[in-house]
Design a protein around this nucleic acid. Structure first.
Length: 620
DNA sequence: GTAGGGTTAG
């Protein structure tokens, strides 16, 4: 009896360790003993609640269940609530059991309903939570903001825009339109559904906006192709009118936007902000900094961040490897991979994507094959579509087109349009017309053909001089109303991003830019630069081709760079498509004649031009 | 004496 008093003693349970099974064993010992002796074993409600928290096995839960039934504790709402939370939400989650238990509760309250909705939102059947959400309304129980927030989570899980809109309407009906956390969740939902307009509307309607609300809006813009707006918000939120201070998450999201846009100056500014505000130790921020610098073409700065880190995880190493890969430092990427193994950091899927793409960008065919094999045999990672993509690129660039085709056919995963497109690119480089046509038929089968694919096919014909076929494809594109993506290049100057498209005349300094471009061409021609006419698609006279080539967007951006920056300053340009041979030659010549370093990021990688050479060794 | 919500790394 003394012992029973002891187990009931409050101090014992307030000090107990939740994961200490000793306490449970104690409890079960007394419980079964009292059952044998048919004597009631009294426990306080608090004891049961505390014990429930330390449950790590379902058998324990069942024993507690039978105990609370025997001791009539089942009548107490607090026990029911705790028990339901335990069955529905702890790692022991069992939805069938939760449902049965829920049905036993005579008067379930809002909290009980929320528990069920929340449990389903985390399960494989998220929409089942709706039933409970509707039932509580039918029973006249008013949902609180959390009820809506849990159903919203279910809608996000299944990307149900209609469901989310219904919740939105209910939030207004229930008068929860001032709940900042709920509205932030709603914004997050719209952002997830790529609906930036509605996310913005919710944001505008919020009575108060804290940093998290700003973060959601910035991340929404960054993910939905409004990257420049995302960066503008980083400054806007700090205006005295709004007075929100960016936190570590704001910096992280903004850095991702900088990486996308290739805006080095803005990225550096955020880097300083991070250090000044003491966020600098966070591994996730450091990892994103590595990615940002790499994607802005500054591997040395990325490496400096890497060196300054006291803790490095698989993400850190993968970011570094990816950085080396996209900047053409294939050997360094492989060395980093080896170093990572020496440090006993196990690689994952994304590490190998980096290693394989490093091999493909640097033409390391044998090494790539070896890593692809080791990935499966040594590390037990089965190849994803991305790994196959790297291998097709690797083999395709090296001219093993048929083997690349065989690899696609042998894949365990269904080939997507991106992988066929990679092979199509290789067909263009090697002038393999027959395979190119075959690949296009695969794309048509997938109903995934894009303007760029026709352009690649057209280029393949052009590369072997089949101008009739080129004209056919052009006609076909015209008939189908397919429009090509216009080439677009950006250059950052004093934190401002300047954008150029083909034949652009919208820039305020356009006259000067064209004059500068003419002057540059004149100087380069003296040094031996000849316009590469095969890059141009149209069947034009050589003179006309030369004329059209002069206005490629990257040339305009470079001319603006020469015009607007002091001599010797590196010119950094980002382009949405892949750079053409002519512009590549142009940049190479310029880097030597004007003694300028030029860094161009195209759709797939970086080109560092220095003294007449490119880091890609004309291999891209 | 119960007690759950929003953003975030390669």
């Amino acid at each position: 009896m003394a012992l029973i008093t002891f187990i009931n003693h409050k101090s014992f349970f307030t000090n107990l360790n939740y994961h200490n099974n000793k306490n449970l064993s104690f409890f079960f010992f007394f419980s079964s003993k009292s059952q044998q002796q048919e004597k009631p074993f009294c426990t306080s409600v608090e004891t049961i609640v505390t014990l429930l928290k330390s449950c790590s096995k379902k058998t324990h839960l069942l024993q507690i269940h039978s105990h609370i039934i025997r001791t009539l504790l089942i009548r107490q709402q607090i026990i029911l609530t705790s028990f339901l939370s335990c069955v529905a939400l702890s790692p022991l989650r069992d939805l069938k059991y939760s449902n049965r238990f829920f049905a036993q509760i005579r008067k379930p309250d809002c909290f009980n309903f929320n528990t069920m909705i929340r449990a389903y939102s985390q399960s494989d059947f998220p929409l089942e939570g709706w039933k409970f959400y509707n039932e509580m309304r039918e029973r006249g129980i008013r949902p609180n903001p959390l009820s809506s927030s849990f159903v919203l989570k279910s809608c996000t899980q299944v990307s149900s825009l209609i469901g989310g809109r219904q919740i939105h309407a209910r939030i207004l009906q229930d008068g929860h339109q001032s709940d900042c956390l709920l509205l932030t969740a709603l914004m997050g939902f719209y952002a997830f559904c790529e609906n930036g307009t509605d996310a913005r509307l919710v944001f505008d309607e919020m009575p108060q906006r804290d940093t998290v609300a700003w973060n959601v809006l910035i991340s929404c813009y960054a993910r939905n192709k409004r990257i420049r707006d995302a960066l503008i918000l980083f400054d806007v939120m700090q205006n005295p009118e709004y007075g929100s201070k960016p936190d570590d998450v704001t910096c992280l999201v903004a850095l991702q936007a900088c990486a996308h846009l290739g805006t080095l100056e803005f990225g550096e500014r955020i880097h300083r902000f991070i250090d000044e505000h003491g966020y600098g130790d966070a591994t996730n921020l450091r990892n994103t900094l590595i990615a940002m610098y790499s994607r802005c073409g500054c591997v040395d700065k990325a490496f400096r961040v890497f060196q300054g880190m006291s803790e490095r995880n698989v993400v850190t190493w993968s970011a570094l490897i990816h950085g080396f890969a996209m900047n053409g430092h294939g050997r360094d990427a492989i060395e980093a991979f080896r170093e990572m193994q020496r440090m006993n950091v196990p690689p994952d899927e994304q590490t190998f994507t980096g290693v394989l793409s490093a091999c493909s960008h640097s033409g390391l065919v044998d090494e790539g094959m070896m890593f692809f094999e080791r990935m499966r045999t040594e590390f037990g990672i089965s190849p994803s579509i991305h790994h196959y993509g790297c291998m097709v690129d690797l083999m395709g660039r090296a001219g093993y087109l048929d083997q690349a085709y065989e690899l696609i056919i042998s894949m365990t995963v269904k080939p997507d349009s991106a992988i066929w497109r990679t092979l199509l690119g290789a067909c263009r480089v090697h002038g393999h017309v027959a395979l190119g046509e075959h690949v296009v038929s695969h794309l048509i089968e997938l109903k995934a053909q894009e303007a760029g694919d026709y352009v690649l096919l057209l280029n393949t014909y052009a590369s072997v001089g089949d101008w009739d076929k080129v004209a056919d494809v052009r006609r076909l594109m015209k008939e189908k109303g397919i429009q090509t993506t216009p080439g677009c290049s950006t250059i950052e100057l004093h934190g401002q991003v300047h954008e150029f498209v083909v034949d652009d005349d919208s820039h305020p300094r356009m006259k000067e830019i064209y004059a500068m471009l003419d002057e540059i061409e004149k100087q380069l021609k003296i040094a031996g630069y000849v316009a590469e006419v095969s890059s141009e698609l149209h069947k034009l006279s050589a003179q006309e081709k030369g004329f059209v080539l002069s206005y490629h967007s990257e040339k305009l951006a470079i001319a603006f760079g020469v015009l607007a920056t002091p001599p010797g300053k590196t010119i950094r340009v980002a382009k949405n498509l892949r750079i053409c041979t002519d512009c590549h030659n142009f940049a190479k010549a310029l880097s030597s004649v004007y003694n300028r370093e030029v860094v161009i990021r195209d759709r797939s990688r970086f080109h560092h031009f220095r003294q007449g050479n490119c880091s890609c060794n004309d291999y891209w």
